[in-house]
């Protein structure tokens, strides 16, 4: 099966030919199969934001190419524009992009640009609002007078309303309180399950991606440093720390217990797993 997104030798250089020249990403090769829930982690400035903007053609590669379903997205202007509807990108602090007079019209902005019929737009707006839990009473309010968390939900709904096959979210939980984070993340999980879409979650919080993603990709200095499932990645704790990344608290506890000589698996990364591991340790201790 062709991967939904394939990246070949992608390099991007900002302000080439000036004293401000900066290589953001370098020689990235990646394949993302359809339906995968992918976590993208990296320190600030590791090039992850630059990378995702190539996936829907907002940035043009300095060299290399991006294939959507096996076809180069830069082959024509129309193709690039088309891919923007297929690959939905939610930017960091997406609430800063709200502009319409009403919540409804703001969510409808994307579908309207797709030149869909009124009925189709209406259906999609309601569906998207449902995914993020925006009640219909808010539809006629101005998005600018709502709370921060609600604004963000509406902005995410604006992208979901295009029914993208690939949903990319750049730090969707930044600056939210714990319950806000939790509900946004569960919205994303729901969309992933309901639509079968591919989801790419960009974050620097290990806790979030560790339990949600099937595969983790770590960016460091513009390159892919690690590409592995969560169960393998956190046993490389030292490596992660040297890249300025945190490891999940559960992993940290497991590693500390190992240091103390207890036979606990280093690939623990959720509270649930840690609890089970410790309980089974106790069982074994009882046997002796």
């Amino acid at each position: 099966m062709t991967p939904i997104i394939k990246v070949e030798g992608l390099t991007h250089v900002y302000s080439e030919g000036t004293p401000f020249k900066k290589v953001a990403i370098e020689q990235i090769d990646l394949e993302i199969p359809e339906g995968q829930f992918l976590g993208l982690i990296g320190h600030t400035g590791s090039g992850k934001s630059t990378f995702i903007q190539h996936l829907n053609g907002l940035l043009k590669p300095t060299s290399g190419r991006v294939l959507y379903k096996g076809e180069d997205i830069a082959r024509s202007k129309e193709a690039t524009r088309d891919v923007r509807f297929k690959v939905g990108l939610v930017f960091q602090y997406p609430e800063h992009q709200l502009f319409e007079e009403t919540v409804y019209r703001d969510i409808a902005f994307g579908p309207k640009n797709m030149k869909l019929s009124e009925a189709e737009i209406d259906e999609r707006v309601r569906e998207a609002a449902g995914f993020v839990g925006v009640p219909e009473e808010l539809f006629q309010r101005s998005p600018l007078e709502l709370s921060g968390g609600q604004k963000r939900r509406i902005a995410i709904a604006g992208v979901l309303a295009m029914r993208p096959d690939v949903l990319i979210l750049d730090e969707p939980t930044a600056g939210l309180d714990p319950s806000g984070r939790e509900s946004i993340l569960s919205n994303v999980v729901n969309y992933h399950k309901a639509s079968g879409a591919t989801v790419i979650l960009v974050t620097h919080s290990m806790e979030d991606v560790a339990r949600l993603a099937q595969r983790l990709i770590v960016f460091h200095n513009g390159r892919v440093a690690i590409d592995a499932p969560p169960s393998q990645i956190f046993s490389r704790a030292e490596e992660l720390r040297s890249m300025g990344l945190e490891i999940p608290k559960s992993t940290a506890i497991a590693l500390r217990l190992r240091e103390l000589g207890l036979p606990i698996s280093p690939s623990v990364y959720t509270v649930e797993q840690l609890k089970n591991a410790i309980l089974s340790l106790r069982e074994e201790a009882k046997k002796c």
Binding site: F91, Q97, L98, F99, F109, N113, V159, M162
Partner: peptide, 29 residues
């Protein structure tokens, strides 16, 4: 601009009036 382009906004083509209208999603935020 990138965020609106990601939702299919078009700043580059179209008639002058269309392009002026297209600026609204940029100017308000």
């Amino acid at each position: 601009m990138s965020a609106q382009k990601a939702r299919g906004a078009d700043f580059e083509t179209g008639k002058l009036t269309d392009r002026a209208k297209a600026l609204l999603p940029l100017l308000v935020p």
